[in-house]
Simulated scan of single mutants.
Amino acid sequence: MHTLEARELTLGYGGAPIVTDLSLELPAGAVTALIGPNGCGKSTLLRGLSRLLRPAGGQVLLGGRDLQDFSARELARRLGLLPQAPITPGGITVGELVALGRAPHQGWFSRSSTEDRRAVEAALEATGTSALRERLVDELSGGQRQRVWIAMALAQDTGVLLLDEPTTFLDLAHALEVLEVIRHLNREKGVTVVMVLHDLNLAARYAQHLVLMADGSVTSAGGAADVLTEAHLASSFGLRARVVADPVTATPMVVPIEPTPVHTEMT
């Protein structure tokens, strides 16, 4: 398993940095959730970890090697990314979309191999989307569509999978459905998962490792019980809350009370 690590990472979009001098090692073979208030730099960090955003300073290492040293094809064989609200090509079926995940493993003019077909079948089965193979992606529900995109990323057959808000725009039932798929991939396939989540209680339930951010920096990292404390919620979110045991999973559950009087968010 390859570790993913940021060292003194600074990221931005040409103006003031969004993430500044951030150092972080993400545990291999675990599900990590990036959490924090809006504008704190979660999605920016994920883009930096995936090489979509070139660092203004510092570096990202995959297995001890700088991400900038990988060719595009080589990196795509090791690291997969599911961006927020991906755009689906018109008129494409589920099977066709999932098969696109095999592109990094194919030559320019090569046809689908037996290995490619097996990877696509395994991805469809792992995400419970085999029965949807002939359906148009545009016709699917939000939860089904997210599972299909995850299947495409899984067909890519990487050891690391980055997900930017995979439950956005989903109702609670569909959000749980998608997170169960992610948990299965981690437990059964050993995939290292890093995902941005807004729902703190779902993050506590589904991630073994949490990274709490505020103002472009990491304020706490570790298990849910260590990160989701009342003091951290007050300082990072500007939120008065009680943290109790989830009656189903015994993981920490945040019960909001009210905002604290003063809280400043980044834009």
Rank of each mutant, 00 (worst) to 15 (best):
E177D: 14
T114C: 14
Q59C: 10
M266D: 11
G142Y: 10
G80F: 00
W108H: 14
I87Y: 12
D199F: 02
A126E: 03
T249E: 09
S113W: 03
E230S: 09
G91W: 00
R118N: 14
Q106A: 15
A231K: 07
K189C: 09
E165I: 05
G39I: 02
L26P: 04
V31W: 00
V218N: 02
A99V: 06
L81I: 10
V31T: 10
R51L: 10
M1N: 10
V196A: 13
L228W: 01
L22C: 06
A16E: 15
V181C: 13
R147V: 00
H174Q: 10
H232A: 05
H232Y: 05
V254G: 07
T158P: 02
L202E: 12
N201H: 10
W108G: 15
H174L: 09
A30Y: 06
G29V: 02
H263M: 08
D116E: 09
S235M: 04
S71I: 11
A72T: 15
R77A: 12
R102C: 12
V148N: 09
T219G: 11
G238R: 03
R65C: 08
D246G: 05
M213L: 15
K42W: 02
D116F: 10
E25T: 15
L34T: 08
L81Q: 02
A119D: 04
L154W: 01
L82T: 05
R242N: 03
D226K: 01
N38E: 12
T32L: 07
G142Q: 08
V255C: 15
E74K: 11
V244Y: 00
L185I: 09
M266Y: 02
A225R: 13
L197K: 00
A103R: 14
A224N: 02
G142E: 04
G216C: 06
P166L: 09
L22F: 09
R205P: 01
T229Y: 07
P247H: 11
T192Y: 00
D138Q: 14
S220Y: 06
V243Y: 01
